[in-house]
């Protein structure tokens, strides 16, 4: 269970991006979070993936309350999430070849043995050829790079996937391909998914249920007014 309760978060002290937002994702469930760009839904996704400490509110991950974020969070908690971002160019270290990009989490967690096999297996899953694996990010297209970023997110077999506008920059065919990879992985492992996006058609097709950002913040405001 991924349970976000009354989260308030932002980047400057007194001006949070949003207040009192609550959202729950059950194990194995796929939840779509729909909202216009710049509304703060990406910030919520980062809070959920333990990448941004909220100002207030609680996050309960599989029954355990989360108290620390980013590097302070225990590694086992951090790596329970696979994260894919909107812009592949910015989410890939420009100096790493795609193989190293995908294998990086394995190395960071000291699981070097068998990493070559795991990378090869994932590359096949996301549809990257051996030739592409040897290249650096500036030598491949956005779509190919996003495939590598998805492989990196899956390499540690996370229990939760957070896809923040994963397909916003991609064409229809690559979008369908990446969504299929995510769904195949979820079917095999029972992982939960939080998919953030602005395309209702896509999220409705992809996810078990789609939550409107305005509904989340709207109820929060209504609750505040009732108090």
């Amino acid at each position: 269970m991924l349970d976000l309760r009354a989260i308030t978060a932002g980047y400057t002290r007194n001006a949070p991006v949003f207040r009192d937002v609550s959202l729950t994702v059950a194990p194995g469930e796929a939840v779509g979070l729909l909202g216009p760009s710049g509304c703060g839904k990406s910030t919520l996704a980062r809070v959920a993936a333990l990448l941004h400490r909220p100002e207030s509110g609680t996050l309960v991950l599989d029954g355990e309350p989360v108290r620390r974020w980013r590097h302070r969070a225990p590694r086992a908690q951090r790596t329970a999430f696979g994260v894919v971002f909107q812009q592949p160019r910015l989410s890939a270290d420009p100096r790493l070849r795609l193989t190293d990009l995908i294998a990086e989490p394995l190395r960071a967690t000291g699981r070097r043995e068998g990493s070559a096999d795991r990378v090869a297996e994932l590359a096949a899953t996301v549809g990257l050829t051996a030739d592409l694996l040897g290249r650096r990010p500036h030598e491949v297209s956005d779509g190919q790079l996003q495939r590598a970023c998805l492989a990196r997110a899956l390499v540690l077999r996370p229990r939760w996937l957070v896809c923040d506008e994963m397909t916003a920059m991609l064409d229809a065919s690559t979008t369908a391909a990446l969504v299929r990879v995510v769904e195949d992985y979820r079917a095999a492992t029972g992982a939960g998914l939080l998919a953030v996006g602005h395309d209702r058609t896509l999220l409705d097709r992809w996810c078990d249920r789609t939550v409107d950002w305005t509904a989340l913040t709207g109820t929060a405001l209504a609750a505040e007014a009732a108090r």
């Binding site: 549809g127 779509g143 229809a172 065919s173 369908a176 409705d204 992809w206």
Partner: peptide
């Protein structure tokens, strides 16, 4: 390409 749209078959074109 059209069949890959989420409001159609949502199936990707194989390969790259």
């Amino acid at each position: 390409l059209l069949q890959a749209l989420p409001d159609r078959a949502f199936t990707p074109i194989p390969g790259l």
